[in-house]
Design a binder for these strands. Sequence first.
DNA 1: CGGGTGGTGGGTAACGTTTCCCAATGGTGG
DNA 2: CCACCATTGGGAAACGTTACCCACCACCCG
Lengths: 346, 346
Amino acid sequence: MEEPSASPRRVTIVDVARHAQVSTTAVSKVLRNAYGASPEMRAKVRRAIDELGYRPLAAARGLRGQTYTIGVMLPDIRNPFFPEILDGITGRLADTDYQVLLGPGCNGEKEEARITEALIDRGMDGLILVAPVSPGSHLEHLASVVPTVIVGRHGHSAAYDTVNDDDIAGAALVVGHLAELGHRRIAHIEHRETDPARLEEMPNAQRAEGYRRAMRSLGLAGEIDVVSTSYTPQGGLQGAKELLARPRRPTAVFAGADIVAMGVLEAFAEAGVCVPDDISVAGYDNTTFAALGPVSLTSVDQAGREIGENAARLLLERIADRNKPSVQVRLSPKLVPRRTTAEPRR
Amino acid sequence: MEEPSASPRRVTIVDVARHAQVSTTAVSKVLRNAYGASPEMRAKVRRAIDELGYRPLAAARGLRGQTYTIGVMLPDIRNPFFPEILDGITGRLADTDYQVLLGPGCNGEKEEARITEALIDRGMDGLILVAPVSPGSHLEHLASVVPTVIVGRHGHSAAYDTVNDDDIAGAALVVGHLAELGHRRIAHIEHRETDPARLEEMPNAQRAEGYRRAMRSLGLAGEIDVVSTSYTPQGGLQGAKELLARPRRPTAVFAGADIVAMGVLEAFAEAGVCVPDDISVAGYDNTTFAALGPVSLTSVDQAGREIGENAARLLLERIADRNKPSVQVRLSPKLVPRRTTAEPRR
DNA sequence: CGGGTGGTGGGTAACGTTTCCCAATGGTGG
DNA sequence: CCACCATTGGGAAACGTTACCCACCACCCG
C-alpha cells in the first residue's frame, strides 16, 4: 500500500548534476553566476534545471552562503504609510534574486527584539527596520551580525546605513501653512516618548521638536500646546478631546500622523465641531486615507516609495561590501494642502 | 591587525553540548522536547543554553526537520481588513514555537505563484493563503508539498483545510437592510472575475451572487444592476461614476468591499451627491476605516480575528498530522448599520 | 622545450541540526 | 538467575548547498 500523496522527493542539485552530466560544483557555480564555468557548461546546466524544474533550497544555501532573503520589519501594518515604503523596497529588489519577507506587526521593544532575532535565526541576508524602537546599542548589535538599514530614525552609526525624511522641516511646513492662513493657536498631538535616549532619534519626537521650533520662530512661542498620546486613531480621539476641553480652544490641530488625524476628525465629528470651519486639522504622511474625498486631509508627503527604494539600494550595497562606510540618506517632505485646513473664523 | 567588528562566530549546538558536558544529540532532544532525556539532563542543558545565549539556526534545522516558521500570504496589504486576520493568526501562534513571516503584497496569479514558491523554498513548515487567485490545481499542488490552509475562498479539497465567511449570507444582509429602509434600485459594485473556474470560489463572486439571489427573493429581480470593476478605491471611483451616469440612478449602492466604498464616497463627494440623503452606500469587511467618525460606513463584519485564529489552529493540526481529513470552517457575518445608509428620499 | 598562466572542471570538507540507530544500565517477572 | 524491557545517553550518518583547493589542458613566452 502506497501513501496517497507521498510528496515526491524534492529535486536537488545532485539530480541536476547527474542529468546534465556535470559535477554539483559546476551546477552551483551556474546558480550563483560564479567564476569558472564556460558558456556551454552554463547552457547545459540551465537546460537541466528547466527540464527538472529544480529550485534551490534556501535553508541549505544559508548553511554555507546566502539565503537571498531580505527581512523587513514594519512597526504597524495598519498605518497606511508603511506599504508605500514596502513597495519601494520590493520594487528595487524586483529584478534581483532577493526575496522580501515581512516580520508581522509588532509593538514595543520586547516584541521588536523577538522579531529581529527570529529574522536573523531564519538566515536573512539583510534587514530593513522601519522606525524601530530598540535602543541604539541593540541596533548596533544587530548590524554587527547582519547587514542592516534603519529607516525613519534619526541618529546614525558606522555600523548601519539610514534613510530618513526631514521631520523637523516637515513639521515646519505644517506650522507655516497654518500660520499663513492666519492661525495662531496651533496645537500639536504627539506620540509620547518616554525614553530620553530615543528622544532625539524617533520621527515623532522630531516632529514635535519641529513644531516647537517653528512656533518659536514665528513668534508664537506663547501658543505652544502639545498633547502626548500615541500614533493611533485612539490617540487622536483622546488628544482631540483634551484639546476641546481647553478654556481657550486651539483654532488648528497638527496631528503627528494621518492615523492620529483620523481619530481627531472622529472626535470633532462626535462633538459637532466643524472642520475646517471651527478648527483646521492637518496630518502627516499623506496616506491614501488622507487623499480620500470625504476626508481630504491636509498632510505632509514623505515619498515613502523613494524611501523604500533607497533603503533597498543601500542594503544591497552593504551586502556586497560589509565594510563600506555608512551612508545617511535624507529626503525632503512636501506639504499637500487639502480641505481640512482653512482660514480661522473671525 | 584584527577586523574591527569580526562577527564572533555564532553559538552552536556543539558549544552548548561541550559547555553542558553532554552530547549534541542530548541538546537536540531537549530543544525539541523529544523523548529520551532525564529531567536532570534537561535542566543541565537548559542552563547551558541560557548561559551561552544559544539560539537554534532555523536554516540548519530545516535541512532535517522543521523550521518552526509559518508563511502567510495576504493579497493586498493595503486593505485594512487583512491585518485583522493576521492578528488572529499571530495571536493563536503566540505561545507556540512557531514564528509567522509574511510574503509581501502580490497581485495576479503569476506574482502569487512566485511568492508561494519562495515561501516553500525558504522551508516554511506550513502556509496560510488568504484569498489566493491561483487555480485550484495549483493550490492542491502546494498542499501536497507543505501543509496548507486556504482562507477566504470557497470550494474545498481533501488536500487542504479552509476557513471562510458566508459571503452569500453577508450580501443578503446588506440587500435586506437596504430593502427594509425602502430602497428598490440597489446597485452592486463587484470585483471583475474573468476566470470561470474561480467564479464560484472567490468571495467577490459569492458576494455578487448573494446580491443577485437576495434581490430576486425580494422581488427586485428587475432592479438588479451590477458594475464590474475591482476591489480598490479606484474601482469604487470608476464604478460610482458609471452608476451616476445611468438614466435612472440607483438609490443605494452596495460596494463589495469597504475600500471600494471609499472610492464610491469620493466620487459622490466630487459630484456633489449627498450620502445618505441622495444615495445610500454600504461596504463589506467592517474595516477600521468604516468605523471612523467622518465616514461612518454601513458594513458587514467578518470577524477577521476569528478567521485568523481558526486558520492557525487548523494549520497546527495539519502539521501534527498531515493525513487528517480536511476541515471546512464557515463563520457567519454580521451587519453593522451606520450613517451612510438611510431611507431613500421620497 | 621547460615553466608559468589563465581558463575549466571537479573532489571534498564543511555548515548546524536532526534522525536513526546502538550501548549501557538497572529493574522485573518467570 | 536469566531473558526481557524501559530508560537514558551518545555516535554517526544524513540533509542540500557552497567554499576551498587542486588537477588538467592549452597556450604563450623566454
